Structures are given as C-alpha cells and as structure tokens.
Simulated assay, not measured.
Amino acid sequence: MPSDRRIVLFDLFGVIARHQRPGALEKMAARCHAPTEAFTTAYWACRPPYDAGQQSASEYWTAVLRWLSRPVDANTIEELRLTDIDSWSRVDGRMVAYAQSLRRVAEVALLSNIPSDHADAFLAAQPWLHNLDHIAFSGKIKAAKPDPAAFHHCVVAMRAAPTDFLFVDDREENVRAAQATGMNGHVFTDRDELAAVIDTWLPTGR
C-alpha cells in the first residue's frame, strides 16, 4: 500500500556540508614530500575501503604512503589523519538550517560516504546532526554509495519503504543508484531548486 511517510535523505558533502577545503591536498602532499598530483591519485585510489569501514585510518594512510613509496610512521599518519578530518569539516549554514526546518513537514535523514573516525569528529562538532531522524555514515554501516546496501540500510533502519524516500545528492551516479532501489531521487545543485522539488513532492495539505 502507498505510504504517506515522507523522508528526505540527504547526502552530506556537496549538499549540507562543503567539499574538501581548498589547498588541503597540497598541504598533505607536502607533508609526505610528494608531488600533489601523485598524492591526489593515491589519496583517492586507496579511499574506497576506508570510506566503507573496511580499513582503519592507520591502514588507509599506510596504503597511501606505500603507494607513494614514502616511509610509514605513526606521527606522519596522525598528522595526515587530522589534516584530512579538518579538510572536510565545513558546513553550509543555510543548508543546515533548511534541513532542520524540513522536520516540521517530513522526516529528515542523512546518508554520507565518510570514514568512521571522520564521522566521530563530525558528530562531535555538529550537534544538530543528533536531531535528525536517522544518520547513516558509510564507515559505520560498512557500505558506501553507490552500493545498494547503503540505501537498503536506511530503508531497514527507518522501517520504511523505498518509495517513502527522496534521496538528495550532488552526484548523479549516487542518485541513479538510489532510484534503482526504488527511492525517489534529486541531483542537488542549489537550495532553491531543491526546495521547489520538495514542496512538489510533499503531500498536499501538509
């Protein structure tokens, strides 16, 4: 049977939070005494298992340093880890306020690709997250978008049907993956366009 539940499921980075701080990759590359281009390749190529909770921060950074043929030591790993966390720490205040305001008319949840230690830091720094109806961080649920398991986690955890969700992400491949599981989807570009989509999607009279 059709449900009257409405759950807006937000991506985090590029929607509510900002993308990586400019200059962060260059800063981490310099700490490794590596060219920025080579560091950036290693940073992203080694990332998927870390995002999906299959590697610890130490294992991830060891893989990056070995990719670059650089020495592996605990101090370097910790400096890189903390710089990396800081580089992903900024939020868009207007989008935070908008997401919170939606809870008057819908359930609001979050599904983000983020390593477990990053998630812990983000939760500590952003108390508004605790007011949402559900939070799913890839490093905690052991599944990262666009893996269907990430979307299924939200469906099961919220005891909802896929059609109850509107998934909002700035990456089209993730939106398509959500739609393949039965969710509604919207590729995020800006708040005003999203607000118009949500207003149309909500039941009349709410």
Results as ranks from 00 to 15, higher is better:
94 R>Q: 14
132 L>N: 05
145 K>G: 00
41 T>L: 12
107 E>P: 03
126 Q>L: 03
125 A>M: 09
84 D>I: 08
85 I>Q: 12
140 K>M: 12
61 W>F: 15
73 D>Y: 09
143 A>T: 01
82 L>M: 15
90 R>L: 07
92 D>A: 13
147 D>K: 12
139 G>D: 06
50 Y>N: 02
103 R>P: 04
115 P>H: 07
44 W>A: 06
78 E>C: 02
85 I>V: 15
88 W>E: 00
47 R>Y: 04
141 I>V: 14
102 L>H: 03
38 A>Y: 05
57 A>W: 04
75 N>D: 15
88 W>Y: 07
85 I>A: 07
89 S>I: 10
146 P>K: 12
75 N>L: 15
47 R>F: 00
138 S>L: 00
80 L>W: 09
66 R>V: 09
120 D>V: 10
59 E>S: 05
95 M>Y: 08
123 L>E: 15
86 D>P: 14
128 W>P: 08
93 G>Y: 12
40 T>D: 14
75 N>C: 13
76 T>C: 13
137 F>L: 14
79 E>Y: 10
65 L>I: 13
58 S>L: 11
74 A>C: 06
131 N>H: 15
101 S>M: 13
127 P>D: 06
48 P>N: 10
68 L>I: 13
100 Q>D: 07
140 K>L: 10
42 A>P: 10
146 P>E: 06
102 L>R: 02
72 V>G: 14
126 Q>F: 02
70 R>I: 05
64 V>G: 04
66 R>D: 04
104 R>F: 00
131 N>C: 13
45 A>S: 12
44 W>C: 05
132 L>I: 08
59 E>Y: 01
77 I>M: 03
141 I>F: 06
99 A>Q: 09
49 P>R: 11
72 V>Q: 13
129 L>Y: 02
146 P>L: 03
79 E>H: 15
39 F>P: 09
52 A>L: 03
